[in-house]
Amino acid sequence: MDLLQASIVLGVVVGIVYALSGAGLVVIFRTSGYISFAQGDIAAVGLFVGLAAYKAGGGYGLTAVTVILVSTVLGGLVGGLITIPLERHGHLPAALSTIGVGLIIGGILNVTVGGDPRAFPEVSSAAAFDFAGVRLGWSDIVGMLASAAIFIGLGFFFRRSRIGIAMRAVNDNRFAGQILGVPDKRLKLVGWIVAGSLSGVLGLFVAPILSLSPVSVNTLLVFGFCAIVIGGFDSIFGALVAGVSIGVLSNLTSAYVDPNLVPTVLWAAMLLVLLIRPNGLFGRRRLVRV
């Protein structure tokens, strides 16, 4: 019984973080129409720079700001200098270029800092309170609240703000956007910058749990992919629900079956959703009318 409760409660907690990794991907998808494989590596660079700042005596606040700042800038650079220009050859080369970027960043990290995992500081190691018999730490609470705030913010951004709506428009019909004077390149760049900072935030929550290595945030990319396929590509809310479900599902699998089966179960869940609802649980079918 305790195990069940713990699995579910902690599943929700980590699920929200999973959802966050899906959200970063959705932001790029919404403006550019493809997926970035480099987000984990972008976050890793931010985290290593942040760790250096921490070791140099900066407090947690400074570390966090550094991480987010570096991944934001790096996200913008990758998008602006490499991937967005490659869109002229089509979406496939653009998406492939993110794999190339990931390989390069991963290689550079391997050479400079090495592949050994390191400890990364968390917001606070103090316990906050017990919930349904499960002890939650302050870092869990902060992670959940921050993610929830980001989700609400993103939903609002894409639904209500002019820039968010224009970003969706550019992805919908780039030509029409250009004709109307929408600065499409700039908006895509904004998408990459936002996604970069999101991956930095994500890294801050992940690194203390998984410990920091060049590939640790990449691991989470898988959960993000599952979250957006299950939740529906264009739905931020879908990513949230799917992320939480994935968190609970993987905790239950790991507690009652075998931790080694978790990735397989996630993949199977993804395929199942594709069979039943090809556009994800909350994705809208693209309306086409001639």
Partner: peptide, 27 residues
């Protein structure tokens, strides 16, 4: 100078109001 392009080219997955919001944003 505004163009109403051939084949209408509306933003299909955006609402009517959002289409107009984008047009205003463009200027």
């Amino acid at each position: 100078i505004a163009l109403v392009p051939e084949g209408r080219q509306v933003f299909g997955q955006l609402t009517v109001r959002e289409n107009l919001v984008v047009a205003a944003y463009g200027v």
